Amino acid sequence: MGGSKHIVLVHGACLGGWSWFKVATRLRAAGYRVDAPDLAASGVDPRPLREVPTFRDYTAPLLDLLAALPAGDRVVLVGHSLGGLSVALAAELFPDKVAAAVFLCAFMPDCAARPSHVLEKFVEGKWLDWMDTEMKPQDAEGKLPTSMMFGPRILREKFYQLCSPEDITLASSLMRVSSMFVEDLAAQQPFTAGGYGSVRRVYVVCSEDYGIVEGFQSWMVENNPVEEVREIAADHLVMLSRPDELARCLADIADKYA
């Protein structure tokens, strides 16, 4: 049973805390304390993307959650997809409050390059056919981050191919315009060895992910080795398609590190 172990689930771009509903339910039933916050301009957060100019602004709800933890409390942070960068930022700022950072088929930065590096490598390497994804500037001056919205084809073929039709319908109706914040992340200094670099990290590979494919997930692990690597045979939306397996995996990680 989870006891007092606290797991914080961090969603990816265009999603929200709702994407964890199956996994959060299972973990809570097993006795874990679970939070799945909506990041800024995501889920039911009322702000539009144009009011979230930086990645730190976007991640602020997670940072506020950690800042409010009582002294001595430590959490297991789980980042999915772009949520991996939010988890890294949180670990950089609050390393003493993070028992472990878990990257679930997620972008995982290192401490050598700027935080944008993994995103730039992903785009430059043409690891994904973006299909009907819509990316466009938010303002004529280019001061705001480029917006991003996934279309129905890429969702169906690259992200949700193992999900039920009901889950695809639900997810499609709850998607919101987001951003990868590459411009802002490229202007930031690398994370530090004493902050993010001091936190224990676990990578969970999803071997049937057509969004962030296994080859790129493996490259990130080779580039920035972790405590351990686990694997689930799942698509990118593993929390919807394989919730039982993922909940067991995260519970086991929490028991080991928290």
Rank of each mutant, 00 (worst) to 15 (best):
T59F: 07
S86F: 07
S147K: 02
E51T: 10
G83N: 04
K22L: 14
A71L: 13
R56D: 07
F122T: 02
L15A: 08
S86L: 07
Y160C: 09
G79L: 11
D244R: 07
V205E: 14
Q138D: 00
Q161N: 12
A29C: 01
F21N: 06
A193G: 06
P53Y: 00
A171D: 08
V202D: 07
A101S: 06
A234F: 06
M149V: 09
A254F: 09
H117P: 01
H236K: 01
C111D: 11
C206A: 15
T192G: 01
V221P: 03
T169P: 01
A90C: 11
V205H: 14
Q188L: 15
D255M: 12
S116G: 13
E92R: 08
G72I: 11
G72V: 11
A258D: 10
Q189W: 03
Y203R: 05
V221Q: 10
P46T: 14
F159C: 14
Q217A: 02
E124N: 09
I7M: 06
H236V: 02
L63V: 07
F159N: 03
P95T: 11
K126Q: 13
G83F: 01
V199E: 08
E227C: 13
T25I: 04
T146Q: 04
D235N: 05
H6C: 04
C14E: 06
Y257N: 09
A41H: 02
G79I: 07
T192W: 01
T25G: 12
L49I: 02
D167W: 02
V8I: 14
R50N: 10
A13N: 14
H80D: 08
G211C: 15
I253Y: 01
H117F: 14
Y32F: 13
D38F: 07
P243Q: 09
D252A: 14
F150R: 00
L9V: 04
A113F: 14
A106P: 00
V8D: 00
V182I: 14
N224V: 01
K143C: 06
V76C: 11
Y257Q: 10
P243M: 11
A29K: 04
A90S: 12
P61M: 15
G16V: 04
P165I: 14
D255L: 12
D73S: 15
A91W: 12
R47L: 08
P145A: 02
Q161V: 04
L89A: 08
L128G: 02
T133F: 00
L185T: 07
V182L: 09
G215W: 10
N223I: 08
A40N: 07
E92K: 10
A113V: 12
A247P: 03
F181Q: 06
L174Y: 13
L62N: 15
D252Q: 12
L185C: 08
K126N: 12
L77Q: 01
W18V: 05
D184M: 05
A60Q: 15
N223D: 14
A254K: 12
A30T: 02
W18E: 08
V8L: 01
T54G: 05
Y257A: 10
S241W: 03
S81P: 10
E214T: 09
E208P: 12
T133D: 03
R26L: 15
F159V: 13
A91D: 12
R176M: 13
A254H: 10
Y203T: 04
D96I: 10
V204R: 06
V123D: 07
R153K: 15
V118S: 09
A251F: 00
G194K: 10
S86Y: 05
D244H: 07
M220P: 13
G43V: 03
